[in-house]
């Protein structure tokens, strides 16, 4: 157990460093953008005013409120301090809503959509890959290539096709939003039913494109393992086929677990963009609005939340990995 502590300690320390660097990047990069978004908001507020003094005063008030006059390092200090309390400032484009408020309302939708979709896609992909490697036949020659082709499709492309076919042509599911536009979020059955029916298209579009990429990885890993010496040796020993297959897939799974963690960022990126197609009120759509409205407090908070999600998922996978990979277990017990 002592070995484990060191292993996890190192991992967590490493993730903390990464986190700090990510925070700095998230803060600094959007603020380097040329242009002055504050003047746009101040301009809106001051529209119709003719007194130059008053306009100047309005502008200065906004500059003061958003704190863009200070040097970057001071801004960062203030921002980081406030961010620790969950306060990311005020949004420029949806002023006077606070960034935390906007993020809070969109984060849940993204998490509820993407986490189950990516996990299910990963699981189905692995099953398909393993079956294709072991059973061959129609799985290897037809189903896998079909999913491989689908997985080459960009996420938003799949989203558009699903939307057109199932949403518009067949009318099986609603086409945009996360719930009926005439509903107010509450815990009634109508609302839940509406949420579920709006959930289908984005969910399956993510699942479908995830399957192929995972399946091909699992297939090659399984083929490697099925040809490994220990499999032949076990066959000589007369160990039952089922048991061998169990070992084989367990070994083949391990790289797939890391593969999931590593490709999570890319997958999320794709899924965030498909949210836009469905006008799903998640982080992807929020991010697009932030970019359009030149709203860097909101944008940097969005990217920060996404980064944290990916970092946490990675850390989680590393911790799981330490437990399920016997090699790490052995190394730590020495």
């Amino acid at each position: 157990m002592k070995g484990y502590k060191k292993y996890y300690g190192q991992k967590i320390a490493w993730y903390l460093i990464t986190f700090i660097i990510a925070v700095v990047l998230n803060f600094a990069l959007p603020r380097l953008m040329p242009g002055d978004p504050v003047s746009a908001i101040a301009g809106q507020a001051a529209s119709g005013m003719t007194d130059a003094q008053a306009i100047k005063k309005v502008y200065e008030e906004y500059v003061e409120r958003f704190g863009v006059n200070d040097p970057m390092i001071v801004q960062f200090g203030k921002w980081a301090k406030a961010a620790m309390h969950g306060d990311f400032g005020v949004s420029f484009s949806q002023y006077p809503r606070t960034v935390s408020d906007i993020i809070a309302s969109s984060f849940g939708w993204t998490l509820a959509l993407q986490l189950p979709a990516i996990l299910l896609g990963w699981l189905l992909g692995n099953i398909l890959g393993a079956v294709a490697a072991y059973m061959k036949g129609v799985f290897d020659k037809v189903i896998l290539p079909v999913f491989l082709f689908i997985s080459n499709m960009p996420g938003f492309g799949m989203a558009v096709i699903m939307l057109t076919v199932f949403g518009i042509q067949l009318g099986w599911a609603p086409t945009s939003g996360a719930y009926g536009f005439d509903l107010i979020p509450n815990m009634s059955w109508t609302f839940i039913r509406s949420v579920i029916s709006h959930y289908q298209l984005p969910f399956w579009s993510i699942v479908l494109i995830t399957i192929g990429g995972q399946a091909i990885g699992m297939r090659s890993m399984s083929i490697y393992e099925l040809n490994a010496d220990y499999v032949k040796y076990s066959r000589f020993l007369g160990i039952k086929d089922r048991k061998i297959v169990g070992y084989v897939f367990r070994n083949a799974m391990l790289p797939q677990v890391t593969g999931l963690a590593m490709s999570l960022g890319t997958m999320m990126g794709g899924a965030l963009v498909s949210e836009i197609i469905f006008s799903y009120p998640g982080l992807g759509t929020t991010m697009m609005n932030a970019i359009k409205g030149n709203d860097y407090p909101l944008l940097s908070a969005c990217t920060l939340v996404i980064t944290i999600m990916v970092l946490l998922a990675n850390l989680f996978v590393e911790i799981i990995y330490g437990i399920i990979d016997p090699r790490i277990k052995a190394a730590q017990q020495d």
Binding site: W14, Y15, T18, I21, A22, L25, N26, L29, P30, R31, L32, M33, P34, G35, M262, L264, G265, T266, M268, G269, L272, M287, I291, Y296, L299, S300, T303, I306, T307, V310, L311, N314
Partner: peptide, 22 residues
Amino acid sequence: NLFTVIPSFVLLILITYSVGQN
């Protein structure tokens, strides 16, 4: 290691945003 964990998608957004539209 740093840039494999920080999603490149996020970096891409941040950098392209920071260079400005022009």
